[in-house]
Amino acid sequence: MTKSILRAAVLFALIASTAYLAFYYAPIEKTMGVVQKIFYLHISCAFSAFVAFGTCFYANLRYVFTREPKSDWLGVSAAEVGLAFITVVLITGPIWAHPVWGIWWTWDARLTLTFVLGLLYLSYLLLRSMIEEPDKRAMFSALFGIFAFLDVPLVYFSIRWWRTQHPQPVILGGPGSGLEPRMRVSYLLMWGALTGLLILLLSARYRLEALRAGVEDLRREAEVR
């Protein structure tokens, strides 16, 4: 208990100090101005969300082949945490886009993919709440998760061919791309802090799911007796 509070406190300090760096150490971007500061949070959350959904897919596949309840717990935890991160992405995105592009939202490839991804995992969680029996719930939601993840590249390419407006990747985007050194330091630290947050949330949610399953088992045992 004290250990987890300590971990959370360290992470909180890390996030607060990287936020300070992002605002005061990193220079103000030339064309976009102060609003570009949201970049540090936006991209790092997007990264955490995609890692979470990738973890969910891995857990889904693992459940189907091994049927360990552990994989199911990991699957639901990753989906919930991923959904939380993607909500931050979907909220910070329009805040950034409005002053820079002049519009709140556009149906561009990456924006739409993020939105559809959020919808798919929302359906995944809804489906789980609609199936009572634990084994059935684990199996059918895992299967849906696998189908949903297979859809991701298809959604991306279909919208990319359709139209696209989102800027080309600045980081690792080929010649001419790259960040100013102080921006890079701030970005990397924020990225590390939010990856830490991802791990912390994921493990807390996983423990909760394990406890829930334990309670469920005990209740059944009590009913049998």
Binding site: T112, V116, L119, S123, L127, M130, F147, S158, I159
Partner: peptide, 15 residues
């Protein structure tokens, strides 16, 4: 449930 599961997945087909 079926429309909720199916319709977002069919985005590429719709486009």
């Amino acid at each position: 449930m079926l429309p909720l599961l199916l319709l977002p997945l069919l985005t590429p087909v719709l486009i």
